Amino acid sequence: MYPSGHRRWPNEVKALVVADTLEPGATVNAVADRYGVQPNQLSSWRRLAKQGKLVLPAVAPDEPVFARLVVCDPAPAPPSCDRLPAAEQIRIVIGEVRLELAADMPAVRLAEIVRALGAAPC
Rank of each mutant, 00 (worst) to 15 (best):
V70K: 01
R34N: 04
V13N: 03
A87V: 08
A15F: 10
K14F: 03
Q38D: 14
A58P: 11
E63V: 08
D104K: 11
V114T: 13
D62V: 00
S4W: 09
R46H: 01
L69F: 12
Q41C: 04
L22F: 07
Y35V: 09
N29Q: 14
L117S: 07
S80F: 02
E100C: 07
Q51M: 11
L42H: 01
P24W: 03
V97E: 07
Q51V: 09
R8G: 01
F66K: 06
A26N: 14
A49T: 03
G25I: 09
A58S: 15
M1Y: 10
V114E: 08
R47P: 01
T27P: 02
P39H: 12
W45E: 01
A103V: 06
L42N: 00
S4E: 11
R47E: 05
A77I: 02
A119M: 05
E63I: 02
L101R: 01
L101H: 01
V108I: 10
I94Q: 14
G5E: 13
K14V: 01
G52Y: 08
A111Q: 12
R83I: 06
H6R: 13
A19C: 06
C122G: 11
S43N: 13
V97G: 04
F66Y: 13
P121A: 06
V18E: 07
A87P: 00
A111Y: 00
M1H: 07
E12G: 00
A102N: 09
N11G: 00
L69G: 04
D82W: 12
I113F: 09
R34T: 10
T21W: 06
E100H: 06
C81L: 08
P64G: 07
D104N: 14
E63C: 01
G36H: 10
D62K: 06
P79M: 03
E96M: 09
